[in-house]
Computed example of a mutant assay.
Amino acid sequence: MSDVDKAATARVSWLQSIVSHRIVPAPFAKHLYKRCCTILDLQYTEAAYRTMFDEAAKHLSVLDLELRNFRDQQTGQTMLALVNTKDDALVQGATRYSSNEIAFVKKLIEEIFKARREAYAIPSLEAVRLGSKLRTHLTRDATEELLKNLVDHNWIDYSSDGIYTLSTRALLELRNYLQNEFGDEYFHTCSHCKDIVTLGVGCSYTSRGCTTRYHLHCARNTIGSAVDDDDALQKLAGGFSCSDCGRVWKSRPIGPRALRLSTADHDGFFSSQGEASQAEPPQRRGRRQASEQDDDEENEEEEEQDVKQQHTRTAVTPQDDEEQDEDDDEPTPRRSTRVKPEPDHQQTPLQQPSRRRSHNEQGEDEDDESDEELDIKPRKRAR
């Protein structure tokens, strides 16, 4: 077998591995090709891998498939995925899911993408209840089985906290659908790498028009180069201005942490108050959390107004300064201070009954004494 035939066989073997995995880390993809070269007794080099990769991408483009690199939002690791670029009726029909299940998947994606405060997540209890809200009703068991199947095929991710999020594969293959379906209102990209962002940090003024958002790994390369901890990065504030709105930077979490859906902040699905909140009904608990979030926004607006008022008050004209100096020169009259005499017996509020109450008690005592005298006489006679 010639070297050309060996290279072609190694490329086909590598493509079969990628098709079976669908999405793999980029270092693992290189490892797969290195194994193919070792089996075929072919020398492996980085240049040979890049040449093979370009040839494979050229052959796949004829089939409307693409090899796309993407950095994982949580780990920051570069991933290689095989993505279908054609969206037609034939491709939509070539699926293992029924029409009822596809309707559920669309509803699930909508709930995840339209979550409040750009959380891009849904608790498992709410996800299971979605099946009963569809026109084509799905039972609880069927919904749970479908969710498990989606997790097994890497369409959605399920965390140990009981939270569903869109996986890297879903973000890659459904990018065009997500952009066309949800638009600029919910579809946001990273200001650094320009990829879709559903987990990271953003400027605290994004709800007021600011468009600055970062992945966690992109934020470390830009605004938080000296911060390694994700928690510290999501609480980063001060020191520099936002590149878009120009205000003092204050991080706002993007992802499940935006609604406190994490083990650090809750003990189940919604709860952030411990055992007391577990007994609280889900509807009332959701309303309470929504009101708390609204109160936080109102408090932020009030703080900004107070700061503006303080700035206007501190801006004093020169005439006002002269008037203040003149007022300081004038002697201020002395005020006589009188010391109130202390009472002989100080009583606490619990020891100070009202007059009306004291009179009533005295009257009741007199009545009780008279009743006791009347009761004593018949007892003596009985003896």
Results as ranks from 00 to 15, higher is better:
residue 320 D to F: 11
residue 167 S to G: 00
residue 241 S to K: 15
residue 155 W to T: 05
residue 164 Y to S: 00
residue 98 S to Q: 04
residue 240 F to G: 07
residue 121 A to N: 01
residue 184 D to N: 14
residue 172 L to V: 05
residue 167 S to F: 00
residue 174 L to F: 01
residue 316 V to C: 05
residue 34 K to D: 11
residue 320 D to V: 07
residue 69 N to G: 10
residue 211 T to P: 10
residue 367 D to G: 12
residue 36 C to A: 14
residue 296 D to W: 13
residue 354 S to Y: 09
residue 28 F to G: 10
residue 85 T to C: 06
residue 200 G to D: 02
residue 173 E to H: 06
residue 276 A to F: 11
residue 374 L to R: 14
residue 140 R to T: 13
residue 199 L to P: 04
residue 374 L to V: 10
residue 3 D to W: 09
residue 316 V to K: 04
residue 79 M to I: 06
residue 292 E to H: 14
residue 271 S to D: 11
residue 353 P to I: 00
residue 167 S to Y: 03
residue 143 T to G: 02
residue 370 S to I: 10
residue 357 R to Q: 14
residue 201 V to E: 02
residue 260 R to S: 05
residue 201 V to H: 00
residue 303 E to T: 07
residue 66 E to H: 09
residue 150 L to Q: 04
residue 21 H to S: 13
residue 161 D to S: 00
residue 86 K to G: 04
residue 311 H to I: 12
residue 120 Y to G: 02
residue 339 V to L: 07
residue 238 G to I: 04
residue 116 R to T: 04
residue 99 S to Y: 03
residue 310 Q to R: 12
residue 340 K to S: 09
residue 348 T to S: 11
residue 228 D to Q: 12
residue 352 Q to K: 15
residue 110 E to C: 08
residue 82 L to S: 02
residue 39 I to F: 15
residue 379 R to F: 11
residue 224 G to V: 01
residue 244 D to C: 08
residue 317 T to Q: 10
residue 316 V to L: 03
residue 296 D to Y: 13
residue 63 L to K: 14
residue 123 P to T: 01
residue 159 S to W: 01
residue 304 E to F: 09
